[in-house]
Computed example of a mutant assay.
Amino acid sequence: MTNENTQALSDAGVSIWLDDLSRELLETGAIAELVKERNVVGLTSNPSIFQAAMSKGDRYNADLERLTKEGKDVDEVVFELTTSDVREACDLFMPTYESSGGVDGRVSIEVDPRLAHDTDGTVEQAKKMYDTVGRENVLIKIPATKAGLPAIAATIGAGISVNVTLIFSLDRYRAVMNAYLEGLETAHADGKDLSKIHSVASFFVSRVDTEIDKRLDAIGTDEATALKSKAGLANARLAYQAFEEVFSTSRWSTLEAAGANKQRPLWASTGVKDPALPDTLYVTELVAPQVVNTMPGKTLDAVSDHGDVHGDTVTGTYEESSKVLDDLDAVGVSYSEVVDLLEDEGVDKFEKAWGELLDGVRAEMDKATTPA
C-alpha cells in the first residue's frame, strides 16, 4: 500500500525524489519499492553519494577489474561506473517519466566537481554525460557558481535538461533562473523543442541553519537565540516567492507559449543536522505546489513514519520570512557572508568526496592488476 504521509505530500504538489543511488539499491529492488510504496518519482546523486556507494561492498568489483584490464585510467573508470548506474536508474524511472510528461522520473548526475569554476569544461562534460547516459530522463547537475551560470545557459541552449545545484542565496537563485531563461531563448532560436527541456534549481536548506545557528550561539543574546533554526526555512520560502515572480513575467509567458517548462525549485539538504529539531522539519514546512523535495533515505523514513503534512506551508509566509533575515542582520549575522561561505564549502566538500572516490577506485584497480 502507498504510505499515507508521502501520498499527502504528493497530493499537495510536492514531487518526492530520493537523494541516494548505489548498485545495492538498484539490484535489491529497494528503489523500485520506494516508487511503489512511498511516492518516490525521481532520484538525485552527487559525488559524496557515489563515494559512499563504491566504498562499501563488492558490487563494483567485476566491472572495476574489467575496465582496468581494458587499460582505462581512473577518471575513465569512475565516469563509466557512475554513468552506468545512472542509466540503470533512468530505465527504472522511465515509466514515471513518460506518465508525467517528462516532469518527474528524473535521475541526476553531477559534472566533475573539479570543473566548478570552469565554464567551458563544464559544458563539454555535460554534453558528454548526456550522450553517454543516453536517456532522455537524465538531468545533468551543474553547480550554481559564477562560472556555472553561463554553463547552465549553454547546456540548456543545447537542449539538455539540467539540475542546478549548490544554490544558497536568493540573488544567485535569481541569476540561475535568468540563465535558464537565456538557455531556453537560445534553444528556441535554434529551433529546438522547448517542451523536451526541463530543469530544477536545487536550493539548499539545512546547511544554512547549521552555519547561522553556530553564529547565533556565538553571539549568545536572547535575540540571537530566538532566531535559531529559522533561517533555512525563511530563505527557502523567499526563494519560492522569487520563483513565483520570475515565472509570471512577460518574458516567461513568451517562452511558455512556445512550449517551455518552468524550472521547478528543488529543496536539497533536507536532512536535519540538529537532533533537537523535528526530523521532518525541512519537508513538512516546505510544502508548496510545483516543488521537488529530494530526501536522504533517513528523512524519507521519518516522513513516512510520522510526517504531518498540513497543506501549503510556504505561500503567505514571505513577510515573516523577510523579517527573519532582517532580524539576523540586526543581531550581527551577515547573510551574504554566510551564503558565500556555504557555496565555497559545498564545492570543496564535493571535490574532497570526488578525490576520495578516485583514491578508492584507484586502490581497487591496483588490486586488479596485482598478481595473486
Rank of each mutant, 00 (worst) to 15 (best):
G220I: 08
E110F: 00
W17F: 10
L342I: 09
F79N: 11
E223L: 10
P150T: 06
T369E: 14
I142M: 11
S15G: 10
S269G: 03
R174V: 15
L170W: 00
G29R: 08
A175R: 12
A151C: 07
L266S: 07
L255I: 09
E351A: 05
R38G: 02
G316F: 01
N137D: 03
S248G: 03
I140V: 15
D213H: 09
T44D: 08
A30E: 13
D91R: 15
Y130N: 14
E319Q: 09
T2F: 01
G102A: 12
E185Q: 15
K228C: 04
L238F: 06
L300G: 05
S269A: 09
V74S: 00
R38K: 13
S248C: 06
M365D: 07
S108L: 12
T6L: 01
P278M: 02
D279K: 12
S304E: 07
A179M: 04
A62L: 14
E65W: 00
E364M: 13
T225P: 00
T284C: 00
D213C: 11
V162G: 03
K36D: 15
A302W: 00
E182C: 04
A151Q: 14
D131I: 05
D120I: 04
V303M: 02
G332V: 03
V77A: 00
H306K: 15
S45R: 06
E319K: 12
A201Y: 07
E245N: 10
A218G: 08
P278H: 02
V205R: 05
A144H: 02
G105A: 13
A363V: 09
A231N: 12
E70M: 11
G157N: 09
L166T: 08
T254Y: 01
N261H: 10
E211G: 03
E110N: 11
T82L: 00
P265Q: 08
A62C: 03
S48A: 15
D340A: 15
S195W: 05
T225I: 14
T155C: 12
Q290F: 06
V338C: 11
A268M: 06
L238Y: 05
T370A: 10
G134P: 07
W17T: 04
I167C: 11
A12K: 05
E24P: 01
N163S: 15
A175H: 07
S229E: 07
Y130W: 14
D329V: 09
V338Q: 00
R215H: 08
T2Q: 13
M177Y: 13
V292G: 00
V361S: 06
E88P: 00
H198P: 01
G297I: 04
E110P: 02
S206E: 05
D73R: 11
S100D: 10
S321T: 03
D301T: 05
D104S: 13
D329Q: 10
D301N: 09
V74N: 13
D344M: 02
L64D: 02
